[in-house]
Write a protein that binds this DNA or RNA. Structure first.
Length: 922
RNA sequence: GGAAGUUUAGCUCAGCCGGUUCAGAGCACUUGCCUUACAAGCAAGGGGUCACUGGUUCGAAUCCAGUAACUUCCACCA
């Protein structure tokens, strides 16, 4: 079999993914093994794969594949989220392009379009995950709006309503004037903005007067009264002058000395001409602006509260879309921002603007519509009472039943739960789960409680008849709530609803797969999703939904900027995988991704992954090219080198040692470290050292035993690497399984076995002495190579090596064969004392000499020795200082002192050796 | 305004329950090599006052306090 010198991932990756699918190797059914469950954070159904998904899903796949290879029944459940706001916005936009307005359609018609859109664009992302190698159980693919999940949502809504945990009420909510829906507080992101602070004149109402004279300057205590030719006036600072049409009061702090003169008066809202009271409330910050606050109860949360306390009128001057409403006396129909500009001009023209200052404040935007400033709006919405949920969700995280990686998010989590606000769950959207509330006709137009909540219309009718006492009510009299639910109201059930644990409690699957083990997600949805899943889990199963939460970082570009479409700094993952192979990209992602840290992604890192695949591939090429001693054929009989035996022994020990580290890394979710350790084990230890140790000379065969050992080691390396790089390892593993097999056997193996359900090697006891001895040998080899390198000697020129071995000491020569082979040393001799006319180097405290035929550059040697000597003497001095310190000798533990004494002895020995070598040069 | 985190080599990070010659890794870099597995490679190298200041200690990258810079979360004073 002739293998190409470059590994080509394309064909290989497709081949094996299809093989895995065909063999249903990702599929899981409950059995008697220990389950390992992960539920995917469902991506938007119409979304496409971005680098964040790549990172997140690579990590999940690594964990799932590893668990599977550890003999657990691994089940990774995939699915998508209906993402109500985002998807509805996309559908509305696409309809608009066809000239169709959403509200020209009925709900049913719109939903038809939405489903069509979903079917057309939906699931692309799941296809893309296959390219990545994700080993999801695709048979279980779910959708937050499929039947099972929808039923669960309805059921939970009804249940929580009946428990009194869901209510409907008039509240100040966050309104998205573009999507035309309410949002939860979590869906508002605040952005700092440069804006203006407008100072407006509110003249005292006609006929009112004050008996205070204006002061000439503002820097005196006492009333600061403004007066001009038109009369007395107060100055109000605002960033939103367009809301003055909704002003129904002005407020001052009763303790504010500047504004005492305004108490009890009325002022005239500029331009509007409305006469409003001056109210007093300690809420007002005396230091801000002039200490006078305009009060617009309809358009600001705090003002709304003031309105309630002081019994103020509420004038809603905005339409749902952010234009000025009929309730306003002016500017009706104008957009809020256009209005702001206009009103500023008009105020100025009317002489009602005292001044305008530059000002920086924070403005809330919709998380899903980042261009739309949200508007506080008074509105009847549905809410979940959250205190109860906070109470049940806090303990499992605080007491470690659920572990967060990194741990710092515990704080964030606690902080949020301790200041929890009720969750606004109704959205004025059609794409989503329709709220199962049904309104019956009511005589009283102000009645907001004329509804019942039930899972079906039939049950609702029954309830409505009971509630109203009107047995004549007909199904047609009931109208279902138009609003849909927040997307997260379905996502929070995800780990339960995926196993049908809401509709069918106690079923075999939920009992087996729940709780899941690991959740891999981004920290920005800790409140949206992570916290709420814990709440739902505790509420419905009295069990946490997962044991560990691994928070990935944000994927940024190499300059640390967030990846975004507008910056164009986000590589297309599919293209990346085409270029570097899925394995290469996976490795690139993981290498830069310690838990919780943002990752600065540079495409170049994928090269490292690709190169690594290629390295492994070439190791395979090397091994498959070897001729093996057939044993019975005397012409082809390879004698087993003792060095080969040592090589195998060392490699086995080394692998056991590294495995121990990898296991620890996984326990602590240090995936990039585990990968790096595996990488070095394969590249450095196996390829650079081990294979060079056992590699037969050109044209000569390798002995059977070493060959088998090599295959076995290579095999295990593939197993270790498989979770990280599933494709190349499967390919090589198969090649290794089929070496020496006839075509039929090979075909059988290829068709029936996969690396992915082999058992992962585990760490075993290893002999540290073997590892140390080999390290010494490797240092000797490096020393010899260094001599060649610095003196321009060919690697082909054989050298001799003399090692000083103290009298009576046994030379440590187990790896001599290897030193000879890799250092191209003809002979190693152990001697009692220094060798004349040779280059020296030290390995630890051992002196090594390499005689050279050519002349030695005495000056250069001297300089080098002197440098070493200086360093050793400095080192000795510092050790001596420590040992001379009585407090140290008495205070430090015996072990530490002993170490220092050993250091002293070593240093002295080294110094003596260096000195004698220097002497030698003369 | 409140809280948390970060600061170690050119870059990205590990080390941080104080004590191995402790200052590390990968990449990048330098030098020399197309040595029949691999130039997507091989070999050998260079490189850091562990942000700063002080303290605790026989001993500090590691513990404590403060300072500075950056990041994130929460709050939302118009």
């Amino acid at each position: 079999m002739e293998l190409a010198s470059k590994y080509d991932p394309r064909a290989v990756e497709e081949k094996w993914y299809n093989f895995w699918l065909e063999k249903k190797l990702f599929h899981s059914e409950p059995d008697n093994r220990v389950p390992y469950t992960i539920v995917i954070p469902p991506p938007n159904v119409t979304g496409v794969l971005h680098m964040g998904h790549m990172l997140n899903n690579t990590i999940q796949d690594v964990l799932v594949r590893r668990a599977r290879m550890m003999g657990r029944n691994a089940c990774w459940v995939p699915g998508t989220d209906h993402a109500s706001i985002a998807t509805e916005a996309k559908v509305v936009k696409s309809l608009a392009e066809k000239g169709i307005k959403k509200h020209d359609l009925s709900r049913e018609q719109f939903l038809e379009h939405a489903w069509e859109w979903t079917h057309k664009h939906g699931g692309i992302i799941l296809q893309q995950l296959r390219t990545l190698g994700a080993s999801c159980d695709w048979d279980r693919t779910a959708f937050t709006m499929d039947e099972t999940r929808s039923e669960s949502v309805t059921k939970v809504f009804v249940d929580l309503y009946n428990k009194g945990l869901i209510y409907r009420g008039l509240r100040m909510i966050n309104w998205d004037p573009k999507a035309l829906t309410a949002l939860s507080t979590e869906e508002v992101v605040y952005k700092e903005e440069r804006s203006k602070l407008y100072y407006l004149k509110y003249y005292l109402a006609d006929g009112e007067n004050v008996d205070v004279e204006p002061l000439a300057t503002d820097d005196r205590e006492g009333n600061i009264v403004h007066k001009d030719e038109k009369g007395y006036y107060a100055v109000v600072a605002t960033t939103r002058p367009e809301t003055i049409m909704g002003d129904t009061a002005m407020c001052v702090n009763p303790k504010d000395p500047k504004n005492q003169w305004l108490r009890g008066h009325h002022v005239i809202v500029p331009l509007v001409g409305r006469k409003v009271r001056v109210i007093e409330d300690r809420y007002v910050d005396i230091e801000f602006g002039t200490g006078c606050l305009k009060v617009t109860p309809a358009h600001d949360v705090n003002d709304y509260n003031l309105g309630k306390t002081h019994n103020l009128e509420t004038i809603d001057i905005f339409n749902a879309d952010g234009t000025i409403s009929e309730q306003s006396p002016l500017y009706v129909g104008m957009d809020r921002f256009a209005c702001r500009k206009q009103i500023a001009k008009d105020l100025d023209a009317a002489g009602l603007m005292e001044k305008v200052e530059d000002y920086t404040n924070k403005v809330g935007y919709s998380e899903r519509n980042p261009d739309t400033a949200i508007e506080p709006r008074l509105s009847l919405q549905w809410f979940v009472k959250m205190q109860h949920f906070a109470d049940i969700a806090l303990p499992p995280v605080m007491n470690g039943e659920i572990k967060f990686y990194p741990e710092k998010y515990k704080n964030t989590y606690r902080q949020w739960l301790e200041n929890i606000q009720d969750w606004c769950i109704s959205r004025q959207l059609w794409w989503g789960h329709r709220i199962p509330a049904y309104y019956y006709p009511s005589q009283n137009p102000d009645d907001t409680e004329n509804f019942v909540v039930a899972e079906t219309a039939e049950k609702a009718l029954e309830l409505a008849r009971q509630k109203t006492g009107n047995t004549n009510l007909q199904a047609s009299d009931l109208k279902q709530e138009e609003c849909a639910l927040d997307t997260w109201f379905s996502s929070w059930l995800w780990p339960i609803s995926l196993f049908d644990g809401i509709n069918n409690p106690g079923n075999k699957e939920i009992e087996y797969y729940y709780p899941t083990v690991d959740l891999i997600t981004a920290p920005d949805i800790i409140f949206f999703w992570v916290a709420r899943m814990i709440m739902a889990g505790e509420e419905y199963l009295h069990k946490v939904p997962f044991r560990n939460v691994y928070f990935t970082g944000v994927v940024r570009d190499k300059l640390g900027r967030k990846m975004s479409k507008s910056l164009g700094n986000s590589p297309d993952p599919i293209e990346l995988m085409a270029q570097y192979g899925a394995d290469g990209v996976r490795m690139g992602m993981l290498l830069t991704a310690p838990a919780g840290n943002d990752i600065l992604f540079d495409e170049k890192i994928c090269e490292q992954g690709r190169n690594f695949s290629n390295k492994l591939w070439n190791a395979l090429r090397l091994i498959t090219g070897w001729q093996v001693d057939k044993g019975d054929d005397s012409n082809n009989q390879a004698t087993k080198q003792p060095s080969n035996e040592m090589a195998v022994e060392w490699m086995e020990q080394r692998m056991a040692q590294v495995l121990e580290g990898i296991e620890k890394d996984f326990e602590q979710y240090r995936l990039s470290e585990a990968l790096m350790a595996s990488y070095k084990l394969a590249w450095d230890d196996f390829c650079s050292w081990y294979l060079e140790m056992v590699k037969p000379a050109y044209g000569t065969p390798i002995d059977r035993e070493t060959y088998d050992a090599t295959i076995s080691i290579f095999n295990r390396l593939m197993l270790i690497l498989h979770p990280f790089m599933p494709f190349v390892t499967e390919e090589i593993w198969h090649a290794l399984q089929t070496i020496g097999k006839d075509d039929e056997q090979a075909a059988f193996i290829n068709a029936n076995y996969s690396i992915m359900n082999q058992h992962l090697p585990t760490s075993v006891f290893y002999d540290q002495r073997t590892l140390d001895d080999c390290d010494t040998a490797r240092e000797m080899i490096a020393g010899v190579r260094n001599i060649r390198n610095t003196r321009g000697l060919s690697p082909k020129e054989q050298l001799e090596l003399f090692v000083v071995c103290g009298e009576g000491k046994m030379p440590n020569n187990r790896f001599d064969g290897i030193v000879c082979k890799l250092g191209n040393v003809s002979i190693i001799q152990y001697v009692d004392s220094k060798v004349e006319g040779a280059i020296s180097f030290m390995v630890g405290t051992t002196e090594c000499f390499v005689p050279l035929k050519q002349n030695i550059d005495v000056e250069a040697e001297r300089k080098k020795l002197e440098d070493d000597l200086r360093y050793a003497e400095g080192f000795l001095a510092s050790v001596m200082k420590k040992l001379g310190n009585e407090k140290f000798v008495n205070g430090a533990p015996e072990k530490v002192v002993a170490v220092e004494r050993q250091k002293k002895a070593d240093a002295e020995q080294k110094i003596a050796a260096l000195k004698s070598q220097l002497e030698n040069l003369k």
